[in-house]
Write a protein that binds this DNA or RNA. Structure first.
Lengths: 359, 359
DNA sequence: TTGTAAGCGTTATCAT
DNA sequence: ATGATAACGCTTACAA
């Protein structure tokens, strides 16, 4: 009907009050006489005014109520990872007090039209991992005074991080295996770098991804010579493929496998079953993350439970604090070792097999 | 150093040009002499200006470059569903030409501070499902002229929908089973309503969730008397539990199971194995969705492949079209029947078993 | 190719 | 409790 959408001024005029009064009616930031209030509301209703335009409000306020979440990967891939999903949950919680929503951002925008760290109206940003490409945009964002927090990654300089005791935690699992008498242990690792194809890796292979490197270091603290098969991602099928590689040669089977994620561990277990091995009697398997692996029952993984939700929540709190003017703080979370039924002592049958030769 | 962040006017002044020229340098919307351009860029660099403030730009332009995605559930739960994940992928694609990003929004805001359909600076909104609670906010949003599209749900009135031929598709799978001689078929259904606990349902049970009801109707078109076990969600473990219920009584085992999702089907298969039944020799199983079920190999589900990515993309296109002033269009997608290795003819051994009695 | 000018719709501040 | 005023920072006709 009307040529343009009504504004708060229109409402004010109709109600016979000033724009500031009308504004206050909608924001509730100050007391308004009930009769006035009602008059404004009626005017709004009659004009079809549905409340302040968030765009204008955010300009004036200097806040958009939006927190950007930046992923390194394709969005679809990111959400297949249960740990990331849990983190998102925590993050949503953590920024809730801020009244903020989460804007999904991809690291690299091929088309160029997508919103980026630089073009989106963000109040703050949370990076999940931090590859090289991102560093550049990061400089821009911090220059603009937008708080940034990095989860599982290093953005250098004074950017607060939400970290995990990956190495120490993984060492715990390894020690657990050693205490059970395991000596011939293999590692099924997360990817070595972006775009990695699955395969065995040499002992001096440079590992670009922080999480992979740290967890591997923990395993090597206990088993320096463990063979390492690096998967192409944290998926059950990748673990299955890795497990097949591990168990292919009956004369060189490890008695235990340290998987760097629960999904990989689940795949390894499946490969073991396929090879006629029983878990944990013939081979012990440890995971990492402590997520619920759909369909893994009746197994209960021996794993490191990481506080994924808390990590997300902490990131949310961190940006909230920074927005409030408080100094940025890095936090390091700790994993809990949880013994399930996928690890056990080396048995006669397992030990009977010829030891595999490292390398 | 400076008391406030530099604006484009500051840059213009420093460069000795007008604000509009500086603006154009950053937006690239018009030709600028190279020397002028460089002068502006230098000025920006010297002032530490990192580009136009997106908030101001969005007010002026009337576009924020943000599309809201509204979920009924907890974010974490939503992303555990591979179909939703795929849809998000398609959606991200679909809104890309718009240059828009996706803002995650939850249906229900317990705290009350969360951004909502009404308070977020959205150009458009996509609802995944549409529960009652949402209807109200919807009115507000549409009143404001913000385009809205609903995927898998009914928002009433003239709100465009992205739908699926659930009933017809499910009927195809059922017919396939009948053609193979199956007569004693059970259905493992998606939840009957929000908050549903798994269990058998009576034939007159009212089913509140559209998808569940439609797919069930398709199955009943062929097998009116099929017993129905409704799971609490689309998860492998739910399918496993359902399968156990189905196979518990050896004297009342169905020769085929119609699962309303691939994840449920995967669980049913696992339950079958657990019960010592071979798939498809002893029991045939069909799924729905056509997603890759991590860890299901070597089975390949007989299923209905739904174009999940396309659905998302279509939703993106739809809002893009609406933003362009074109009329809203509802789209109905079609599933493809795909025969895998989880269905087959009724065998002597399966038929040998006593038929189960419906009800 | 560059400049001028007029908002975009709201809210914070300060008076009254 | 209400109102007047002045930004918030930018973009885009239109004019030069």
């Amino acid at each position: 009907m009307s040529s343009r959408r009504p504004t708060i001024s229109d409402v004010a005029r109709t109600a016979g009050v000033s724009p500031s009064t009308a504004s206050v009616v909608f924001s509730g930031k100050a007391a308004v006489a009930e009769t006035t209030r009602q008059r404004v509301l009626d005017a709004a209703a009659s004009l079809g005014y549905t409340g302040p335009d968030p765009r204008a409000a955010s300009l004036r306020r200097g806040r958009s109520g939006i927190v950007g979440v930046v992923f390194e990967e394709h969005l679809g891939a990111a959400f297949r990872d249960p740990v990331k999903t849990l983190m998102m949950d925590g993050l949503a919680d953590g920024v809730a007090p801020l009244g903020a929503g989460l804007l999904l951002l991809r690291d690299h925008s091929p088309g160029g039209t997508e919103p980026t760290l630089m073009t989106a109206p963000l109040d703050a940003a949370v990076l999940i991992g931090c590859s090289g490409m991102l560093r550049e945009s990061l400089a821009v964002v911090t220059a603009r005074g937008i708080p940034v927090v990095v989860i599982e990654g290093d953005a250098g300089e004074g950017i607060p991080r939400i970290a995990l005791d990956n190495r120490e935690a993984q060492r715990q699992a390894a020690s657990h295996l050693r205490a059970h008498g395991h000596a011939d242990v293999a590692v099924v690792a997360l990817p070595v770098r972006a775009g990695w194809e699955r395969g065995w890796i040499a002992h001096d292979e440079p590992i670009e991804i922080d999480v992979t490197r740290e967890r591997l270091a923990g395993a090597r603290d206990v088993f320096p010579h463990a063979r390492i098969f690096s998967a192409a991602g944290s998926f059950i099928d990748e673990g299955l493929a890795a497990g097949r590689a591990l168990f292919a040669d009956p004369s060189a089977r490890p008695t235990a496998v340290i998987a760097q994620s629960d999904l990989l561990a689940a795949g390894v277990i499946r490969a073991a079953e396929e090879a006629g091995l029983r878990v944990p009697d013939d081979v012990s398997v440890t995971g990492f993350d402590g997520v619920v692996v759909d369909g893994l029952a009746p197994y209960e993984l021996t794993t490191l439970v990481q506080p994924a939700v808390d990590k997300g929540r902490a990131a949310g709190h961190a940006v909230a604090a920074m927005l409030g003017g408080d100094p940025a703080v890095s936090i390091r979370f700790t994993c809990d070792f949880r013994e399930g039924n996928t690890t056990g002592p080396v048995t006669a049958r397992a030990a009977e097999q010829p030891m595999s030769v490292p390398r």
